[in-house]
Design a protein around this nucleic acid. Structure first.
Length: 557
RNA sequence: UGUCCCAUAGUGUAACGGUAGCACUACAGUUUUUGGUACUGUCUGUCGAGGUUCAAAUCCUCGUGGGACAACCA
């Protein structure tokens, strides 16, 4: 709430001016997805922007499905989209809108333009229209059908609607300027004939409006004050305004901002679909996908995604945001809410030779040192525990703080132990580690052992260890800009080691985990329970690693 | 040989004619029973050339670089 933190993006500035000048007393924004695919993190930016604006300034945000192309759209997508938006924490007042709700109104708008002599039916083929349009540097030429009479146009247009003509045989065009330097003003197509089944209007319509003759008009009908879209629609704006002007409808204002790009990530719906179809990933909700559903399954929280979207800002310049910022945003949130648990991902058995056979101690351990309200849990400890394979080295370098022959370490919340010996299996891997423990180093009590340790490691009691499948996800692409190469396809940069599955053990409390619970597996990262978990084996997805100075310094060598 | 948009540390984003700041990253250090967290510090920036002005990241001109536009897609 402090004054000095007030720094507005350019859209907020526009809105504040409109509010201050009295142009509007409250604002109406909209989020207008086409129901032809799943939402991804790029959509999240738009959602957070639009809903955030109406929350901040007072007003509403409509959810409107831009369903003007029945060929590619489906009810399945409208449901997933609504689900994702709700999960992100936004609500659209219970009633979603559809461009298809306005088809009758749009038809009347078109008739109005025809009557004004500003629209005409064109019988040219798709190729002819393309040919006559010219190029950005060469003016187009006018269609021979351009000067039909109002009566003829009205009649033809009605017959188009009635289904008298074949797909592609006619279109309705706005009569503007075939020589305009803006291609979108060269008599843009308003309606095309499609004998297709629409998921909502079913067989009612044989003609469907194009984006340019549906979007702005829908905005006007809903009295959207600020219609926020991405940069590629910039050149559509003159047409958007032309229709408002000629139709004399509510003057929504289109404002464009730069879409989100993330390094090591692709955002194109088409390419994401390819990953799904070629089974590079398991589906739209694969935890490696940048889709909302994928990130949810990966363990991201709505808060983290919202914070990320607010942090990246809104501007008009092209940008490529570092995924590190996304990862920071989840860690930041998960650090505060995730319960700590001890889970060993690559188990090696550690046997405490001087610990009494058959004895078990139960320690009270904090669920989350960052949150005193998180309470404690009881964790058993006895003679045999599992520790992480990577926490022991036969011949450790001097910067290695963990266990090795003759070295000591603290078992988290338990005792300090000193390694006396180890045993290898047939392949030369460490199979068992033998230690003595120091009873007077018991956690929570004055430590009189005199033993110095350089690190504390996590462990899991063997007797009641819970088998856990651990899915470690890495980035899907090895290249920072997988779709930014002219000579190489993005598929060339697929990281084929993006999923590693391990079978580990969790402390006894892991039995109580339920779907989508968030944990920090101590020293390993943040994890969430996957819906593929069964009674026999719990499955956990790694959302993100902890920052790991040790791993990083090793990686450099 | 078009029209439109854009240009600030490595990345993202502020500064609206008056001290170039914030976050992330990277690197150092302090604390730590997580090599986590927290905290401290360091490195690094106004695309170029002119002009206007007491004063320019900001306004103007010209360059340079990047992007969008030629679906009966959105």
């Amino acid at each position: 709430m402090s004054e000095e933190t007030k720094s507005l993006n350019f859209i907020e500035q526009i809105i504040e001016e409109d509010l201050k000048s009295g142009k509007y007393t409250e604002i109406v924004t909209r989020f207008p997805p086409e129901p032809n695919g799943y939402l991804h993190i790029g959509h999240a930016k738009s959602i957070v922007l639009n809903f955030g604006l109406s929350q901040k300034y007072g007003g509403t945000t409509n959810l409107r499905f831009d369903d003007t192309n029945p060929i590619v759209e489906d009810i399945e997508y409208v449901e997933s989209i609504m689900n994702d938006i709700h999960w992100l924490g936004y609500d659209w007042g219970g009633k979603e809108h559809y461009a298809s709700d306005y088809f009758d109104q749009l038809y009347e708008f078109a008739q109005k333009l025809i009557k004004k002599g500003l629209a005409y039916v064109d019988d040219s083929t798709i190729e002819e229209i393309k040919e006559m349009r010219g190029t950005p540097t060469k003016p187009g030429i006018e269609s021979p059908y351009r000067n039909r009479s109002v009566e003829e146009n009205l009649d033809l247009f009605e017959r188009m609607k009635n289904g008298e003509f074949e797909d592609g045989s006619k279109v309705l065009r706005a009569k503007i300027d075939m020589a305009s330097p803006n291609m979108h003003l060269r008599d843009p197509i308003m309606y095309r004939i499609k004998n297709a089944f629409h998921h909502r209007t079913e067989d009612k319509w044989k003609i469907y409006p194009m984006y340019d003759f549906a979007h702005g008009q829908s905005d006007a009908i809903e009295q959207i004050t600020h219609s926020i879209c991405t940069l590629e629609f910039e050149t559509h704006r003159p047409l958007y305004n032309w229709f408002i002007d000629k139709l004399e409808i509510f003057p929504s204002r289109q404002i464009e901002f730069a879409r989100l790009n993330l390094n090591y990530t692709i955002m194109s719906k088409r390419k994401l679909l390819q990953l799904v179809e070629e089974e590079i990933v398991e589906g739209w909700n694969d935890p490696r996908m940048p889709t909302i559903s994928g990130m949810r399954r990966r363990g991201y929280t709505p808060e983290a995604i919202r914070n990320f979207c607010n942090r990246i800002g809104v501007a008009k310049r092209e940008n490529i945001v570092d995924v590190a910022l996304l990862e920071f945003s989840v860690r930041e949130h998960l650090n505060k809410i995730a319960l700590r648990r001890m889970v060993v991902t690559e188990p090696v058995k550690l046997i405490i030779t001087n610990y009494p056979d058959g004895q078990t101690e139960w320690f009270d351990i904090d669920n989350n040192p960052e949150d005193e309200n998180a309470g404690t849990r009881k964790v058993p400890f006895s003679k045999e525990v599992y520790i992480e394979k990577s926490d022991f080295m036969i011949d450790p370098p001097k910067k290695f703080f963990r266990l090795g022959p003759g070295r000591s370490v603290r078992l988290k919340n338990a005792y300090k132990v000193t390694c006396d010996d180890y045993k290898l299996d047939d392949e030369g891997n460490v199979k068992e580690i033998y230690c003595t423990y120091h009873p007077n180093s018991k956690s929570g009590q004055p430590d009189t052992s005199g033993i110095k340790v350089k690190s504390t490691i996590h462990w899991v009691n063997v007797a009641d260890a819970v088998p856990i499948q651990i899915r470690l996800y890495d980035r899907l692409f090895n290249d920072e800009a997988p779709d930014g190469h002219k000579d190489k396809d993005f598929m060339h940069f697929i990281n084929h080691d993006s999923l590693k599955i391990l079978d580990g053990y969790g402390e006894v409390n892991m039995k109580d985990a339920t779907m989508e619970d968030k944990f920090q597996f101590l020293r390993m990262g943040y994890f969430t329970m996957d819906f593929e978990s069964t009674a026999d084996e719990l499955v956990f997805n790694r959302t993100v690693t902890l920052k790991d100075a040790w791993a990083k310094s090793r990686g450099k060598k």
